[in-house]
């Protein structure tokens, strides 16, 4: 018996050390990740100065210009375009599935949307480049040029006669298509958590479908919905391959959204192979900035999720 207890204690100690070791290893990796990006960013910070990195509006590695404004703007702009398209479409899709759609095709539609989410980003990229870009140039771009493009003051930003194909808009569109299923399934899951009897009681008061959604379903589902949207935005910020394919990677200011542009990820992807010295450091600094922007976004989502869950 004593012998057995000894064995038990020994094995318990070993398994504790092994599991704790695995956990610690991952923590160490995360710390190293930050450390490596910081250390490798140092040369460019030292070389051109931190102020210049944030204020110089040129990204021209050959001329020692490493201003992050353009790639950062590109990342934010494409994400903004994606959000403007995907948030209403994603929420609308989820509402259609859980509120309006005939019960028979409800499950099929749900699975279809999840299929859309499982497709790897390289496939979105190839398709975006070879299929969506021409489709957009032929149909969507003229449509936007003829509508939003006619607006006073801001119209010129949405209008272009050139059909180049690769552009900030197409990048935003591909990102939108990638995050629609994400937003839709988050929204659907939160809608499903609204108790059926609450929904019924709104209808029992004589509310229309729209009023039930507006006054009961969406307020109840708001927490999950907001968390989903912020997570989706985080995804769009860091998406690499799909954007690298369709944005045309041109780090120059654009006059309208139908011109090629550059994002943080497309810049890193396009340049790292030929880069050396300070240039590499500049690219890793971009990665660091992306990591920071992304972390802030995720923290925001988590905070929102936690704050609202107490109500």
């Amino acid at each position: 018996m004593k012998h057995l207890i000894k064995k038990y204690n020994r094995n318990d100690k070993i398994s504790k050390i092994l599991t704790k070791g695995s956990g610690m290893l991952f923590l160490l990796i995360v710390i190293t990740l930050f450390a490596v990006l910081l250390i490798q960013s140092y040369p460019v910070i030292h070389h051109v100065g931190i102020l210049d990195l944030f204020t110089n509006s040129a990204w021209q590695p050959n001329h020692n210009h490493f201003g992050i404004i353009i790639p950062l703007t590109g990342t934010l702009l494409t994400t903004l375009i994606a959000g403007v398209i995907a948030i209403p479409v994603g929420i609308g899709t989820a509402l259609f599935i859980s509120e309006y759609c005939p019960f028979k095709i409800r499950a099929i539609l749900s699975i279809a949307i999840e299929l859309l989410a499982a497709i790897p980003s390289i496939v979105y990229g190839l398709w975006g480049y070879k299929s969506l870009a021409p489709f957009s140039a032929n149909y969507i771009q003229p449509l936007i040029t003829n509508t939003l493009g006619k607006l006073p003051f801001v119209g010129s930003f949405f209008s272009s006669a050139d059909a180049i194909g690769t552009s900030a808009f197409v990048a935003g569109l591909v990102l939108a298509i990638m995050i629609i299923p994400f937003i839709a399934s988050f929204t659907r899951d939160s809608l499903n958590q609204v108790p059926a009897v609450i929904r019924e009681s709104a209808f029992a008061l004589g509310a229309t479908h729209y009023e039930v959604v507006r006054d009961v379903m969406l307020p109840f589902a708001m927490r999950g919905l907001m968390t989903g949207i912020i997570m989706a935005i985080g995804r769009a910020l860091g998406e690499t391959m799909a954007v690298a394919y369709v944005i045309g990677n041109s780090p120059h200011w654009i006059n309208n959204i139908f011109q090629p542009f550059a994002t943080i990820t497309s810049t890193i992807t396009a340049e790292f192979k030929e880069a050396s010295g300070v240039h590499i450091s500049g690219l890793l600094f971009l990665a660091l900035i992306l990591l920071i922007v992304n972390t802030i976004t995720i923290l925001l989502a988590k905070r929102y999720a936690n704050k609202r869950s107490k109500v």
Partner: peptide, 16 residues
């Protein structure tokens, strides 16, 4: 439904 009201098994206060 505005002429025939209903009260359910569980309280169904709206989040307003």
């Amino acid at each position: 439904r505005t002429r025939i009201g209903m009260v359910f098994q569980k309280p169904t206060a709206f989040p307003i």
